[in-house]
Design a protein around this nucleic acid. Structure first.
Lengths: 207, 207
DNA sequence: CGAAAAATCCCCTTTTCCGGTGATTTTTTG
DNA sequence: CAAAAAATCACCGGAAAAGGGGATTTTTCG
């Protein structure tokens, strides 16, 4: 069962999609919000599998809301909504963790297809910009090795510019241990050195 | 296992959170302090992964305490606590290294979520999350020095993990020149070394 | 044109990083 | 409990970066 939530400031769109999905047995209507605040409020006490998110919202834009939501609820899939082809914003939303986007005037079948694709972990693009954007998520969402708590701590301090001895002092461990963590991180993330380690870690929002 | 410490001058809050976390297996109660001095004293001989820190303390405010703690123990995550929405102070705490804030009247689930998010290196906002995040992001984008075209080229290659000689070869210049650019970048962005250079550059979307 | 900024090049010393190769202890987990 | 994973500690040698110094040439722009 897919729990679907929608954030859009157009009552028409909310109502329209609601009625479109009325008879879908595997899609449950979690609710709707007409601005970013309400969306955040809803998710404090509720949950959903997928959010259909308009790019233009009264209080904050969908790009930022997308980032906040994925930060707080990484498991929720987000599908961008727009009335026309807003390539730049779509691109930014993808960078912020969205799983695709769809045009509001898409036929029912396409909407259902998009919802199911996204909820299965896939990427869905509506319109022409799709092709140009497909390369994005492949590189962004490749599976990352799991970092231990200690590794993340060390990684954060490395990125702040501390040397091994300095980090060792702060974490009350030996500099050899810090260096081990550093080497493990470089090996785990398959990078060349500390500089690229920081870049890749930030690319994947590990920092 | 998360070791949690709390700094708050309200016994009710300490007791309340203590009992809320009583049955959480992955959260260990490190202790509590009712003012900034006690907190500093505690960390001289003890440690913790996360500090729930009230903004109003009898001897010093949470903003300053946050700065001191992050200076001394960068590995400790700090989650601001407040009874109501104290936007300005939250913003300052974030600038001083806090990882977010949460309202004291938040439900248990939200508290747990916040603790886990922060301990995983994330950022958590309670209440008017959107507003708080906007302020935070604005403060992040303080004015940056202008980088020349060549500096950006070098910077990009540094972030990719290439060494000075490798970059020199690719740009058909001497490794001394590359090193000069590197040093200029470190000076311009006011960072300590290459690792923090990459981080700051990415923070400000220079890469 | 002429000054300022950018880009280039060179050397030296000290510190740090990187790669490899071990190991033990603690914690998590099946 | 036993196996696996994480965290810890240690040494070595070569490579690279950090920090300092100075210098020249090219480009940009008022």
């Amino acid at each position: 069962m897919i729990r679907l939530f929608i954030v859009d400031d157009h009552p028409v769109v909310i109502e329209g999609i609601h009625s479109l999905l009325q008879n879908e047995r595997d899609i449950e209507w979690a609710g709707h919000a007409m601005n970013g605040q309400s969306c955040l409020g809803f998710f404090m006490n509720n949950t959903a599998n997928i959010i259909l998110m308009d790019i233009n919202l009264p209080d904050m834009n969908g790009v930022d809301l997308c980032a906040v939501m994925k930060e707080k609820y990484p498991g929720v899939f987000i599908l961008g909504l727009s009335t026309f082809d807003q390539g730049l914003y779509i691109k930014k939303m993808m960078e912020n963790g969205a799983s695709g986007y769809i045009l509001k005037n898409s036929p029912k079948e396409e909407l259902l297809n998009a919802i199911h694709t996204v909820c299965d972990g896939g990427i869905y693009f509506s319109g022409e910009a799709g092709e140009a954007l497909k390369h994005y998520q492949r590189s962004e969402q490749k599976e990352m090795p799991v970092l231990s708590r200690r590794e993340k701590e060390v990684l954060a301090l490395i990125a702040e510019g501390f040397t091994n001895p300095e980090i060792a002092e702060r974490l009350f461990i030996s500099q050899f241990t810090v260096d081990s963590h550093r080497k493990n991180l470089i090996a785990k993330l398959n990078v060349k050195n500390t500089a690229s380690l920081v870049k890749v870690a930030m690319d994947h929002k590990l920092i």
